[in-house]
Nucleic acid binder design. Structure first.
Lengths: 117, 117
DNA sequence: TTTGGTTATGCACCACTCGACATATCGATT
DNA sequence: AATCGATATGTCGAGTGGTGCATAACCAAA
């Protein structure tokens, strides 16, 4: 028997929209926070700017929350920063995700490991 | 703020293959157990027989475990039943998944709910 | 031995997602 | 006002996974 590893995906949805927030958008927000711009964040994550921009738009629209503050123009072209709300979301989701990660490992050990042996 | 719902996907992988077991294959095994055939199981789950067959093959090959016993021919055409190992997998994964489901709800309440409020 | 419903498997097509482009717009600084 | 790099947004093509045939093999019962 090959060694097994757990995998999981976690996200939030509304009645109208699937995937309004999840690991991808969480990583995006974190990256925006450290990089200071949407473009730099997308490059850092190795995803297209197009996708990053779409994801961010979707999250903000569906959650109806201002996660970031964007600015266009200027000599640096522009910037994107997390709002206080955005930072709160990152923190909360980080803890949320961490709890699940631990639970997955624990449950795997408890229920699957012995079966696989 | 729209009401949020948690979503998660759970699966197991090896170094060589992604998704050797997970919610889909778990549901498939459960359905095989109640339906008695792969065809009936796939119809019950509203997935194509083609996919069900492929999923089952992949799980058995990658886990290197005999999850089902199949029989072809006969007046009823054939049948597919879970082996003891298959039943053990279903039970173990059921408990595994249930633990995660509870953890997700709990963590959501703890970390996200108040933020959304 | 004919039949019928299932397992077995390849292949073409389809829907969906994402990435790559192509532009357009913005605006503080020079 | 000219510049420069980021935001904003549509589109088209590639990759992926699933569906829908098509077809073969199987075999207990009639």
């Amino acid at each position: 028997m090959k060694k097994l590893r757990t995998r999981f995906k976690l996200w939030l949805s509304t009645k109208d929209a699937e995937g309004v927030f999840g690991d991808g958008k969480w990583r995006l927000l974190k990256s925006i926070d450290t990089e200071g711009s949407l473009r730099a964040a997308s490059q850092s994550l190795h995803i297209s700017y197009r996708k990053a921009w779409g994801d961010l738009k979707k999250a903000q629209q569906c959650l109806n929350v201002g996660l970031v503050e964007k600015q266009r123009g200027g000599i640096q072209g522009g910037r994107t920063e997390l709002t206080e709300q955005g930072k709160k979301w990152v923190k909360a989701y980080t803890r949320f995700r961490s709890d699940i990660e631990k639970a997955v490992e624990k449950a795997f050990t408890k229920h699957i490991r012995r079966l696989v042996k």
